[in-house]
Design a protein around this nucleic acid. Structure first.
Lengths: 357, 357
DNA sequence: TTGTAGGCGTTATCAT
DNA sequence: ATGATAACGCCTACAA
């Protein structure tokens, strides 16, 4: 009995009348089977009007039967366009980033682009490596989401001579094209909401020092306080790192204050999650003892206890917009340089009127 | 004044003594500058011992100065290996998937592989399209995470003749290689934990009908009940769809029962999130009125109120294992066909002894 | 140790 | 409407 159950051992095996090759069929294989030259196959498969409809039909039939797929790598070599983009992200294991990635991926696919995912893990060395890999892959464009170490590989990116669009990046000044949320206006709306509820001692639980979005959100918080004639209270501004665990520690500091805040504006929802947890640990209730607002409106915001009042970022839409901007740039068109997206305050149950007294 | 500020308009511009081309430099450009043939450049850059150290040093210096990066697409064409893998995922905007993706991506990069992200959005048409794209890209291997429509593009995958590894897929029987969590043992441990706390009326809030992991987790739940001599209670088995919103509805059914459960095993953490929310809506406390366990141990599990008792899946590690298995297969080696990963019960505060009476 | 020649699978440019 | 031929940028013989 012959051991040809994989069609490989025998080199060529017969499968339903069509020859099965040990490798993927090439355009020449199709040409041979259709008794035409390979350029004709190429034309037929691209629906060129220059080819006889009958010939085209025959070619397509054969291509279909053999499972022929034109090699994008060979095509990329000759056309000098890979229809590929690089997507640099600190980590996909972050709910914000993964939503943006989702919007990008969908839009890219809709336009025939494939996406190289390059996860840097916030490690500068790694980030440099992944960008170099992207360069070797000859991506047609690059999207960077929420990068925090942009400055390091910035020269590398410039060397690549491909368009780049940033999404909520921390180093916006360095590049021309970006999609950003209106951080300041969003956080200002959140703070004004709290002020409207009678709060005066409002804290800001921010991100690490020096990040652009943190600077802007804090400015929005401050602007609301200023407009309401509330004096600055430096002791009510503390820092986490955008994650829940650090937020617990930062919240602890606020709670230890002689005169603790009655409300807290958190840099993002993850921070709010940690802050609320810490309040529970200390036996405080939200919103009865303390009001909390977040930023992002991640999927879990409707499911916290109580549901979180937060500032919504349309994350997928932002990914889509960034990709569309990149598509325009890659096709040689112009694109709006700095796209600003409106944030929307979503009031749920983590905010309430300040306690009397 | 010449308009050559981009070095493009003039075709070739002088940048610090090195010629700057309007395109990325090719191996021939480097060869010309180094006054050697291009194969020598190729050898030097691959650290071949066959090249004079001095020549090699000169070549590397020039390559460095010009920012030369060998084209992976040209290399892929000649070597017939792209060092690229396709990662098919229902949606990255799912905390479980994104953790797995993260583990995969990191491992792939460590081995010089780039990852094409192919998000199918659980849409069969889209899933077919993305897999076709992967075929055209000539990926060396494919990883599929949590697919629910595998059967549809299964023939397509086979046509590609590249190794495939599945992670927690719902159609395991169809492929040889997979990495799976021990669903049954994991959920059994969870149910036994509840039984140990005195619970007898334990519900199971599952996923949609017909998914393998749901079948297995339910079997684990049932096995624990059987072993404890607890009679089957069909009315306590309800279904969601793996997401929080559907879980709220399913939970509502359980609460409406004449004799509601005192504990509920949820298919996953998202389901538990919805279930707990619904309890709050109905004014019930966890764990005082009802104990809850989840499955996955997503990042938010420690931050729910109360923190969620759940069955941990080492998601990143599973991604890493899958990628390592794929790497072995791609290099022609054998690899363990079905890798089973142990689940671990993490007891937090959402489970407590059943109320007396 | 280095150079020459050929080919990977396409598309593009000519012919015919 | 089709075919021959030449790139694209690299690697791998093989020759020198």
């Amino acid at each position: 009995m012959l051991n040809d159950d994989e069609g490989k051992a025998a080199g060529i095996a017969d499968c339903g009348g069509i020859k099965r090759l040990p490798r993927q069929p090439s355009i020449k294989d199709i040409a041979r089977l259709a008794r035409v030259s390979h350029p004709t196959v190429s034309r037929a498969l691209q629906n060129s009007p220059l080819v006889n409809p009958q010939t085209a039909a025959k070619i397509r039939k054969i291509a279909d039967e053999t499972g022929y797929r034109a090699s994008a790598v060979a095509r990329g070599l000759v056309t000098r366009r890979t229809r590929t983009i690089g997507l640099v992200v600190t980590t996909v294991a972050d709910p914000f980033a993964s939503e943006v990635v989702c919007g990008i991926e969908e839009t890219a696919n809709d336009h025939g682009y494939s996406v190289f995912l390059a996860d840097s893990n916030a490690d500068p060395v790694r980030e440099k490596k992944v960008v170099q890999a992207l360069a070797e892959r000859r991506v047609d464009g690059i999207l960077v989401t929420s990068s925090r170490v942009g400055a390091l590989y910035l020269p590398l990116l410039k060397e690549m001579m491909v368009p780049i669009v940033l999404v909520n990046d921390q180093h916006p000044g360095e590049f021309v094209h970006s999609v950003m949320i209106s951080n300041q206006e969003g956080m200002r709306a959140a703070a004004e909401h709290l002020i409207g509820l009678g709060h005066r001692r409002i804290a800001y639980l921010g991100d690490q020092l020096g990040y652009q979005s943190d600077v802007e959100r804090r400015a929005g918080y401050q602007a609301a306080l200023d407009a309401a004639g509330i004096a600055a209270m430096p002791e009510l501004v503390v820092r986490g790192n955008g994650k829940a665990e650090a937020a617990m520690e930062a919240m602890e500091k606020l709670l230890a204050l002689a005169d603790p805040p009655t409300a807290v504006c958190c840099y993002n929802d993850m921070t709010a999650l940690g802050a609320m947890r810490q309040m529970r640990v200390r036996g405080l209730r939200v919103p009865e003892d303390l009001s909390v607002v977040g930023f992002d409106d991640l999927f879990f915001a409707s499911y916290t206890q109580p549901p979180l009042t937060t500032v919504r970022q349309p994350m997928r839409k932002m990914g889509k917009m960034a990709m569309e901007s990149l598509l325009a740039l890659m096709s040689g068109a112009e694109s709006v340089a700095q796209i600003k997206v409106d944030a929307e305050l979503i009031v749920r149950e983590s905010t309430a009127e300040v306690k009397a007294g």
